[in-house]
Amino acid sequence: MSIEVRGVTKTFGDFVALDNVSVSLPRGQLTALLGPSGGGKSTLLRIIAGLDTADSGSIEIEGVDATRLPAQKRNVGFVFQHYAVFKHLTVARNVAFGLEIRKRSKREVAERVDELLSLVHLSQFAHRLPAQLSGGQRQRMALARALAVEPSVLLLDEPFGALDAKVRKELRDWLRRLHDEVHVTTVFVTHDQEEAMEVADEIVVINDGRIEQVGTPDQLYDEPANDFVMGFLGEVTTLGTVKIRPHDIAVSPTPGLAGAIRGTVDRMLRVGFEVRLNVHTDQGQDVTVRVTRAQARSLGLVEGSEVWLTPAPVGLHAVLVSSMAGATPVPPTP
């Protein structure tokens, strides 16, 4: 294990930021700490980095007890949400900072800086000041700066939080590819479940100072340990007594399967390739359903249509969708 967190508790006054948290993160993996704001995920990251100290509990990094080590001695790379650039230094000197502190020879520093700047695609900006870079470029510079000292773990605190949606997405893909190249144990904090699921090998869901669940993105999505995880990782609606994802509901124009619930389409909203339906059931429930555009068209759905809803088991759902794609309506089974 690369990082071992054991029984860490941290309070700020009356507020309990972390409540007896234990988690171990394996070497070389890209892990996301996911959770709502104020849930304690950033605090955990800062405690691992040594920027905050835990009230109790211990931190072990690469087999060394780091609980009492200052940030300077932990050999972690840290990337901040707002870049934390040294604005009086050029891009190259920002990246060189950690190496200069370690008294490496001038030649070695220059070589390493060149290498890192080309890794983050900033070679042509080496002599600019950070103020002349865009947000995404600054964050890449910050990443190169953190990687320069060859940290045993790389910690990123909401690294893309301050960027606009498009750059965010680009950087996210890029981070994944970078990790596949560099293989340093990486932990990043995010409140965006899509980001976590796209990038991470493993996700640690943190809420209210406690760990709710640890698992791969698929595990978390398909087998959420509790309602909180289910709700946080994707949209949830209630059909009858079952909590279900809106796209896991099968829609049929006729009372097909046993136990189907009848309702009328209240509202239809088309967003890109999908159609969001608001169905008012006979029991008086408002159910959110998501179908593809092709499905909606082949079912002839309009506002006011009468539909029957059934929870689609994952396998059956897949069958339904594939037959819909061929624009063949599913024959009602009597």
Partner: peptide, 27 residues
């Protein structure tokens, strides 16, 4: 002055004195 910047320098291994001299003082 952004406190992050001093923390970034610390996590890169800079001592308190170095942070003052190389990061805070120039600002």
């Amino acid at each position: 002055l952004d406190h992050d910047v001093e923390e970034a320098a610390a996590s890169l291994g800079a001592s308190r004195a170095t942070i003052l001299r190389r990061i805070v003082l120039p600002s």
